[in-house]
Structures are given as C-alpha cells and as structure tokens.
Simulated assay, not measured.
Amino acid sequence: MSETPGWSSPDQQPNQPNQPQQPPQPSPGYYAPPPPGAQPTIKPGVIPLRPLAVGEIVDGAITTMRRYPKLIIGAAAVVAAITQILGLLVQLPFLSDLSSVVAQDPNTLTQEQLVEQLTNTLTGFIGGTLISVVLVVIGTVFLSGFITVIVGHAVLGKPVTFAQAWEEFKPRLLPLLGATLLSTLVIMVGLLLCIVPGIWLWILFALVTPALVLERCGVGAAFGRSKALVNGAWWRTFGVLLLTAVIGWVISWIISLPFGLMGAASTGFSDDPGAALSAGSLVLSTIGGIIASTITLPFTAAVTVLVYVDRRMRSEGMDIELQRAAGHGGL
C-alpha cells in the first residue's frame, strides 16, 4: 500500500516498506523554520512550500477542489446525497405525523389528547433526527479523511486516483471515527460547562483529522499533535477556521435560498405551519442541502488540512521535508 510521503511527525520514523534505507535523521535543529528569504519559494502543488498567509490557505483549498474535481466534488456529492436522502426518508413518516397534529383544530381535542399526540410525534421526530445526525457524522468523517489524503498529494503536486486515496485512507477510517466521536464529546462537555471552553477545545483539537490520517498515528497521539501544533497560534487558527465557517455558511445560504423559495411557492406561501412540512417542500430543501454540502464540506476539510500544513511549516520547518518529498531535495 502506498502512502503519502513526507508527513511523518518529527519524533516519528516514516513508514515506507520495501523502500531503500533512509539516511540518518538530521539533528533536532533541522526542524527550526528556515530564515525568511533563505531560499526561493517552491510551489510544486496547490500552495507554496513556506508559511502561508490566510488568503493562500483559502486559495489552496479552492485550487485543490478545481484540480481534483472528480475525486473531491464527486465524493462529496455521493456522500451528501446518501446522507441527506437517507435522513429525509427516516424523517418523512414522523414529519407527516407532526404535520397532521399541527393541522388539527385544538378545539376538537382535549388538552390531554393534544399533549399526548404531540409527545408521541415529537419523540419519533427527535429519534429520526438523531439517526439523521449520525448518518451525517459518518458521512462527514469519511469525506474529511478522504479529502485529507487528496490534499496531502495536492500539496506535493502528485497525481492521485480514487483507488489510491481509498487504499491510503481505509486503515484510518475507524480510528478517525473514534477520534471524531471523542472530540465531539469533549467539545460538547466544554459547551455545556460554558461556551468559551467548548470553543477553545474545538480549536485545540481542530487538527486531529489531518494528524491522524497523514501521520498515521494513533487516536491519542493525534490529539497530542493537534494540541502541540495549535499551541502558540490559537487565535490565528481560530480566525482562519471562523472565516472558513462564515464563507461556508454564506455559500450554503446562497445555494439553499432559491430551493427554500421554491418550496414556499409550492405551498402558495401559506402561513399554515403544516405547509412547511409538506413532502414537496422537504424534497426541495434536501436538494438544496445536497448541492450546498457538495461544495462547503470539501472546502472546509481542505482548509483544515492546509492549516495543519501551515502550522507544521511554521513550527517544525516542514517545508524542507515537503520540498524533498516533492522532488526538490537539492534546494
């Protein structure tokens, strides 16, 4: 199985079976960032191999999507379609019941009957929503890890096929799912205690996915690597990821708006609450969600990987390793 080269952590020997023996590792000082202007900028792939500006991170994510459209957009479209459609199918029966309850005249029911119907319907609806959330999480985990592998090749300017990316990512799928569930739990606890600790933990562990997939380390080590890379640059990392979230929200809103309007038009812009739960309106909303997710999910995942790359180049001199992996070791 081939692996994306050049991504081992400073204290980790690269795992390259059936390869010629590598020369001895340089002294620890090798990982200090080179002085600015010490060598010309090298750009074998979607980003220059030097510490990145915020605009270069965003541009690198967009360039990656444009350079590998079949892999990234195709995978994102399939994942978004499966998760959104399955979620809709799970929720449709409960939404139909909820619509019927909302449409009833409360004057024809006793208060106990109305409360009982609402409780039963909402219980089923919440259960369906939880199933939908689980499907979305699994789909997002797969997509983020798969795109991480592609971005790893894109940074080095290396071609990659679906089969190759899948072979590299497949052994990391279950550890990544476990790491995602663990980080989600930790962040939720932080949010319950207070919003600020939750946000702090979100940024602190934002780089777990690229660390786990590209460095091929364990779950605990990936959390440690994310923490080490974010330390000293929490606010910058927060700013980049917040900007990414805002861009993704704007794109999603722009794409979903016409489908929401078409759904409202299909019900005659009715003020009836049950009209918003009609099958036609929900189907249109699902189509808009699929299109929006196809663009925003890979963009967010690619930005996260490039933030990880930037942090490693700034704190560990990873640009030298990447230049060598890209075939510019003589520079």
Rank of each mutant, 00 (worst) to 15 (best):
V78T: 11
F146T: 04
T63R: 14
S252V: 00
I203S: 01
S96K: 12
R324A: 14
P36I: 02
V155A: 06
N18T: 13
D272G: 12
S8L: 00
K227G: 06
D11K: 12
E321G: 06
T129R: 11
K70G: 06
S285W: 02
T267H: 07
L109G: 09
P26G: 14
P23Q: 09
R66G: 08
L143V: 09
A222K: 01
G74Y: 11
Y30S: 13
E56C: 05
F259M: 06
V78F: 08
P14V: 13
V250H: 13
V115E: 08
L192I: 05
D59E: 07
I85T: 15
G190C: 09
G274Q: 08
T294Y: 15
T286N: 07
P40M: 13
T121Q: 12
A292M: 06
P10M: 14
P51Q: 04
V240S: 00
L181C: 00
L331S: 10
T267D: 10
G60I: 00
R50V: 04
P17I: 15
G220T: 06
D310M: 07
G274S: 13
R172P: 07
A76K: 14
G330A: 15
E56G: 04
P298M: 13
A279S: 09
I126W: 07
L229K: 00
G55Y: 00
Q104H: 13
I72E: 04
S252D: 02
G220Y: 01
P26I: 14
L135T: 02
I203H: 00
P17V: 15
Q104D: 14
A301S: 11
E116Q: 15
G224V: 01
T209Q: 10
V307A: 06
I195M: 05
S285M: 01
A221F: 03
P5A: 09
S256V: 04
T161A: 08
V137Q: 02
A301M: 05
S96R: 12
L135I: 01
T83P: 08
S256W: 01
S2T: 13
P273R: 11
L52T: 07
Y31S: 14
F169T: 02
S9M: 11
A77H: 13
D310G: 07
W166V: 05
V115W: 06
V208H: 01
W235M: 09
M1S: 07
P273L: 12
F125D: 04
V101A: 09
P171L: 14
G280T: 03
E112V: 08
V46E: 09
M318A: 05
S281L: 02
I203T: 02
Q323G: 11
T300E: 13
V46M: 06
D319G: 03
R236I: 00
A163H: 10
A81H: 05
Q13A: 15
Q16E: 15
T286H: 06
V213N: 01
I199S: 10
E116H: 15
Q117N: 14
Q13W: 10
P106W: 14
L261V: 03
S2R: 15
A265D: 11
A76P: 12
T110E: 10
A302S: 02
V160Q: 08
I255H: 14
L191V: 10
G29F: 01
L204F: 04
W253K: 09
G60Q: 03
A61M: 10
T180P: 00
L201M: 09
A80H: 09
T244P: 06
K43G: 05
R236P: 01
T180R: 03
H328P: 08
G280M: 03
T209R: 09
